[in-house]
Design a protein around this nucleic acid. Structure first.
Lengths: 210, 210
DNA sequence: TAGATTGTTAATCGATTAACAATC
DNA sequence: TAGATTGTTAATCGATTAACAATC
């Protein structure tokens, strides 16, 4: 819509702004200048002003930014003014843990169902979320307006799973499998590569302690 | 050590190279050129050559790169030629799921213990990993050569928890709590902000479907 | 009005890509 | 040797920071 030509770098910083503004709001702080926020967040005030101005002028000269207003606006930009319905594919440890995470619902990300191939799991419920068979996927997705599918399955299964998901009409995938999915260009994939993250940490350790 | 002035951008790409080279190796492929790899990974061949040359000349003119050798070398750069001992602080859904992830051990990241404040959980075991009380932290860490602490606790508890961890001598934190930790500069923090990641996905959805 | 702070333009810095000489 | 492909230098592009005029 709005976010046509805005760089990925800028977008990736928005959730962090949102987090800090939420904290300030909770602490009852009404206004903040880019300089104050920059000290808090350990970035430059320049960057904050540049980032925000990609989306319009949220501040006021001589005053700064209204915390509540800016919080709401960034939330809106991120699409948090509406709810998103999710399914989780893979009811293993990780899938179950994600299903049990209360923080997602708090931001409007509602987990509607878990899917698995394991007959043992199907029909049961995990943290109050039902586990369905993969055969039920199509029917469930069309009946529940699912926006996002989470892939919490082994890398070997991920590519085929993505295919299944996409053929149901889902256009957004939150991918926890340790592989890169190849998908049509109108499908969005956000990766959480845990092992990659751990390896980066490992690199940093060794470049300190040798 | 070696990784003095190498940019964070380059480092963050190494695990992905490692992943692709591992796949190639498993498929029995012996050599690969930067051009072939670039097509596979959907990056430029130039970037691959530039990235690798930060660490030395791993290739050979007219031939390309030996897959096995390059795989090993990148593994070494990432510190995967040695094992790392981890503890997980927080034995909730997420902590338990991480404890149950077999993929970490496969790369030498060994989970040695879980820690929690919940009396209900202490003394039990989760996926074969014992759950200890927070009081046991100091003793356990010094006795087990722990390199990395995972924070899998709520944001409210994270900052204090980080303090406890650091005071035990641990210098690397894998942070899953939805907050930024402030730590001494010799302590390394690698964040996995799941909600931030989900918000980025949400942004992309809305900028397509508006 | 005077002071503060934004929005925005210009300058700098870093990262990516292109090009090619070196060399296997 | 001729062909291929690296390592590396140079050119381009994008992102960050600095500066300042606009304005609340």
């Amino acid at each position: 819509m709005d976010g046509k030509g805005i760089s990925k770098t800028v977008i990736s910083r928005l959730p962090r702004y949102f987090r800090y503004l939420g904290d300030l709001k909770d602490r009852g702080i009404e206004r903040i200048s880019s300089r104050e926020l920059s000290e808090l967040m350990k970035v430059t005030a320049s960057q904050i002003r540049q980032d925000l101005n990609n989306f319009g002028g949220f501040g006021q000269q001589g005053y700064g930014y209204n915390v509540d207003y800016l919080y709401t606006e960034i939330g809106r930009i991120l699409g948090l003014d509406r709810t998103h319905n999710l399914i989780i594919c893979g009811a293993g440890h990780l899938g179950a843990a994600l299903a049990g995470n209360g923080g997602f619902a708090h931001r409007g990300f509602l987990i509607k169902g878990l899917f698995d191939v394991d007959e043992e799991k199907i029909g049961k419920s995990v943290h109050g979320i039902n586990v369905y068979s993969m055969e039920a996927l199509d029917y469930f997705v069309s009946g529940n307006k699912i926006d996002i599918a989470v892939i919490a399955a082994p890398a070997e299964a991920a590519e085929e799973l993505a295919h299944r998901i996409i053929s149901c009409g889902i256009r957004a995938i939150w991918n926890f499998s340790n592989t890169d999915l190849s998908v049509p260009e109108d499908v969005i994939v956000e990766n959480v590569h845990l092992l990659d993250s751990l390896m980066r940490l490992s690199y940093d350790i060794d470049s300190y302690t040798g």
